[in-house]
Each structure stands twice: as C-alpha cells, then as structure tokens.
Amino acid sequence: MKETVLLTGPPLNGRDEYTKEALRLAKNENFQYYHVFDYLKEIGREKGVKITRKNVLDFAISHPDLMNTIRDEAFKRIRDEIDRSDKSFHLVSTPALFRWGSGSVLGFTLSNLKLLKPSRVIIVLDDILSVRRRIIHDEEWFERFRRNEENIKLTTLVMWREDAINHVKTLVHELNKEEIQVRYVLHFGIRHPHQTFIDLIFHENEKPLIYLSYPMTGHEEEYYHKVRGFYKKLSKYFTILDPGALDDWWIVAEYDAQVEKNPEIQKIKIKNIFDGEEIEELDRDDIEQATDILRRQLVERDFNLVDVSKAIAVYHYAQGVSAGVISEMAEAYRTLGAIYLYYPFKKRPSPFMEFYGMQNPSRRTMFKDEDEMIQAMVEEKEYWTKA
C-alpha cells in the first residue's frame, strides 16, 4: 500500500537539509523523495522561464498566474510519478507559505493537496535564532535583507512560522471535510535525532509515537543528561517526540534575565545554545514583539505533539511542580492518551499530577524506577495503541 507524506513548513527552517541527511542514513527503506522546487525549475524551462532560488519569490509575485500554472503542473507530475511507482512511501517536500514584500507565495493550494492526497503532514521547524543565522550565512537570502543583520527581525521569522502553520491547518481542515483523510499534522523540530525522523516516517506501526514530557527550565546539566539518557532508552521501542527539539524558550529566558538585571537595556545578548560561543545582539523591542507569539506557539506546538501521540511519558526528575508538565498530562487525559509517570521521590507529587498519572486502576502507571516504567510501557503497548 502506498502512502504519501507531505513535508512542509516555513522557509529556511532546514527542512530539505535535515530530511536528505535522514534519508541518506535510512537503510533498506522503500521510499521516493520529491523536491517540488526541482519540478518548478524543469517546467519553467519548458515554458521558456528560468526559475532560480534567487528569483522565484519575485517571479511568483510578479507573474502569479504563470507561477500557479507551473506549480499545478509540478503537482500533477509528482502525482503521476507516485501512481507509476512501486515504492511504499512517497515524501513530497515544499514550503507552505510566506509573505514577501507586497505579496505572499503559496507552496500549495487546496487543489494541489486534493491531487496529492497526503495521509500525513509533517511541518518541519527549527528554532527561530537558527533560522536567523541560516539567513545570515545564505548569500542569496542575506541579499534580500540588504546584507544587514538588523533587517532580519525575529518578529518576521515567527510570523513566517505562524503563516505556514495556519495555511497547513486551514487546507487540511478542508481536505478532511471532503473525506480525504489526513491522519495528523505534526510540528516536528529538526533537533530530533535523524533516527527519530526515520522511525516516524517508516516505522510508526512498530514504534508508536510517544510524547516525552519533562520540566524544561532552571536545572543543572546533570538533569538534562538524565533526560537525554531516558530518551535514548525509550527510543529503542518507540518514536519519541521531544519538545526540546524546538527550543525558542531560551530566548525568552535570556530576555527576562537581562531586563530584570537592567530595566533600561536596549540590546539583548543571546549566546548560541548549541555551541555556547557565538553571541548576537538583538533589539529589545523586536524580542518583546516576537515573545508574545513565541510563547503561544510553544504551547500550541507541545499540545500538537501530545495530540498526535499514543501515550505520554512524563520524566519528572525534579521535585518542583511544572505547570507545563501538568498541562501536558491534562491534554493527554483529554485526548485519551495513555499516561506514564516517572517520579522517583518519597515526597508525594502534586495532587493534579497524581490524578493524571494514576488514571487506570487496573494497571500501574506511576513509577519510581525508569527502567521498570519502560518495561511496563513495552508490555502494555498493545493495550494503549488500540485507542
């Protein structure tokens, strides 16, 4: 049986680079990969139009009818190739939507998706500062911002993300109304290991989706080392969705800390969270405007990951109550996902955590030993994956 998966999202989030590397590492998987832009260039040449990475946005805005014709033909050719193919998985990659200058450019329309009939839609996302750095180091894109880093506003980038997600959600809603069933839309951060992406695409039946919930801020390095170790152990049996794979919260935390220290500060210094060395100075006003959107996107992203998962594994290696963890457990409870809680302390947990973490009277779901919890999840997998 053939399955079509749409890989999309805002521009410059590393979608194709990440996907191609993951697929290079995938061994003996039965798939075909379609990069829509390659088809746009080919069809453009046939029509006497040279479409390049540098001119595609201006061309699409200046010649919308011709661009729509080229894009529609691209999706028709991909559909034809899928129909003729003997592969099981067909991955189609293209940006969703973004606004540029006086107009907006659509990566696909409702008619394109009705033709494609994706069973799953993966919105591939990177943290906002990494997107900004990607623009700075991309010659063609940096030129669009007049080679001035100050022109690359975080507010612009979070709105690119907002527009892309809303475009996808709107069209998928219309598809489902027409009984073209999309099983789920998933907000996927590219800080996930490549093997997680491989498991997500190819092995979802054997390794069902699990959301890993844990208190994310204000802890020592040893704490995060424990979380990563648990993630690795759990990944042997399940496809683990980690909210930390898309981490914009540290921008907000840095902003809050520096403003508290100096209320008059106008430039916020942000250190690269991954290399710990590169430092950028960002306008306070820009961060303030972006933060309101980022905070909401963070909650919506985490709830999305909970909603598509079959179960939630709560790794609460901290005694303090986390509002985020409690909210995620409540969301899993609302959507009938299985809840497993690791809480290794003698002190009783919050009554709300205890309520959500001990829902099933016929089986144990709250543990003091992480290996015992993983074993229980594996043994009971057939029970909760049927939900």
Rank of each mutant, 00 (worst) to 15 (best):
N272A: 03
M159K: 03
L154D: 00
P95C: 08
S104N: 12
R71M: 07
H219C: 10
Y211R: 00
K169Y: 11
S309I: 00
F108Y: 02
Q266F: 06
Y231R: 13
V378T: 08
T365G: 09
G244Q: 01
E331P: 04
W141R: 06
S88N: 07
H35K: 10
Y340K: 00
F303L: 08
F238M: 13
E150Y: 03
W384Q: 11
R144I: 14
I122A: 02
D248R: 00
Q32A: 09
D283H: 05
R191Y: 10
D83L: 12
F75D: 06
K54E: 13
R84H: 13
D72V: 03
Y223S: 13
A96K: 02
F202M: 05
K271W: 11
S102A: 07
P344V: 13
G244D: 02
R99Q: 04
K114G: 13
M67F: 12
F188S: 06
I43T: 01
H194C: 15
E278Q: 13
D72W: 04
T8L: 06
D302R: 00
S104D: 08
W141H: 06
E178W: 07
L175T: 09
V314G: 02
N205G: 11
A74L: 06
R120N: 07
P344C: 05
R132H: 10
P208F: 04
P215R: 03
F108A: 05
A332Q: 04
K381I: 13
K207H: 09
A245S: 14
V172R: 00
Q359L: 07
E42K: 06
V5S: 01
Q181E: 12
Y255M: 12
L154N: 01
R191M: 11
L106M: 11
F202V: 09
F108S: 01
Y33Q: 12
P118E: 02
V227E: 06
H316I: 05
M366L: 07
D292G: 05
E278V: 14
P361T: 07
A164V: 12
P95F: 14
Y34K: 02
A257S: 14
S119M: 12
G324T: 02
I339D: 03
E220V: 10
V124F: 02
Y34L: 05
T239S: 02
E328F: 01
L97C: 10
Y383Q: 12
R301C: 08
A290I: 00
Q359V: 09
N166T: 14
L298P: 01
K232P: 10
L154W: 00
E174S: 14
K177F: 09
L23D: 04
L341Y: 00
N112Y: 07
I70W: 01
L113D: 04
S102W: 09
K20Y: 09
Q32L: 11
L298Q: 08
G357F: 00
V227R: 06
E81N: 10
D285L: 01
F197Q: 03
E29T: 10
K269T: 14
L282R: 08
A253K: 15
L246V: 06
Q319N: 06
A313D: 03
V252H: 12
E221R: 12
K233I: 04
M67I: 07
L200Y: 10
E379R: 14
G320I: 05
L116K: 01
S235G: 13
E204G: 15
T156A: 03
R146C: 04
R147A: 05
E178K: 13
V308K: 02
K207F: 09
A376N: 08
